[in-house]
């Protein structure tokens, strides 16, 4: 069963409250992929663990790195670098898997390293400029500058919503059909 105990979990869970104040802050866990830095809402993060070998799932998209056993639950791991079209991650045990809860599902994101916990006020978040990066900006909820670093905030729900996973499966099947 997924543990909700996490040393990274903030004690103050007021973030869940819906108040639209501009100064309202949220916490994000930031991680790096190559030179780029991303953030994901800390409330969605269930666990962070070092990369271990996964079990490959046949006929799935390349960025689907297989499944691993998280205390008895089978969790699929997505290679974010690959997902963003930057090629496969040559994963070692120095790499990190960030397990997030997306709706009813638990999925893992393979990233290079976790870097920080950021506290970001709503009004600090800028809208995505078009064509800024080489990833689909539909998965980003905004940009924020932290100590001169540009951090792209990921919307895990959008990134891993069922539709895009299914699309992935469809893509994989199409790839198979071509053989």
């Amino acid at each position: 069963m997924p543990s909700t105990h996490n040393y990274l979990m903030p004690h103050d869970q007021k973030g869940a409250d819906i108040s639209e104040s501009a100064s309202e802050t949220r916490q994000y866990i930031s991680f790096t992929i190559g030179q780029e830095e991303y953030g994901v809402d800390i409330m969605a993060v269930r666990e962070i663990k070092a990369w271990t070998d996964t079990t490959h799932l046949p006929n799935t998209p390349e960025y689907m790195r297989g499944v691993l056993n998280l205390r008895g639950v089978i969790v699929p791991i997505f290679d974010l670098r690959c997902r963003f079209g930057m090629g496969l991650t040559q994963a070692t045990n120095m790499h990190v898997v960030v397990i997030v809860q997306v709706g009813q599902r638990m999925v893992g994101m393979l990233v290079d390293a976790v870097s920080d916990i950021l506290t970001i006020a709503k009004d600090e978040i800028q809208q995505m400029p078009q064509m800024e990066r080489n990833i689909d900006d539909e998965y980003l909820s905004g940009l924020v500058t932290v100590k001169d670093r540009l951090v792209a905030l990921l919307d895990a729900d959008l990134l891993f919503n069922q539709q895009s996973i299914e699309n992935g499966v469809v893509l994989g099947k199409a790839a198979l059909g071509d053989k």
């Binding site: 799932l57 046949p58 006929n59 799935t60 499944v67 008895g72 639950v73 089978i74 969790v75 699929p76 599902r105 638990m106 999925v107 996973i165 299914e166 499966v169 099947k173």
Partner: peptide
């Protein structure tokens, strides 16, 4: 163990 709890059905599995 269910694979579909967190992912989708996979042909042959």
């Amino acid at each position: 163990k269910s694979l579909e709890e967190n992912y989708d059905p996979i042909a042959g599995v």
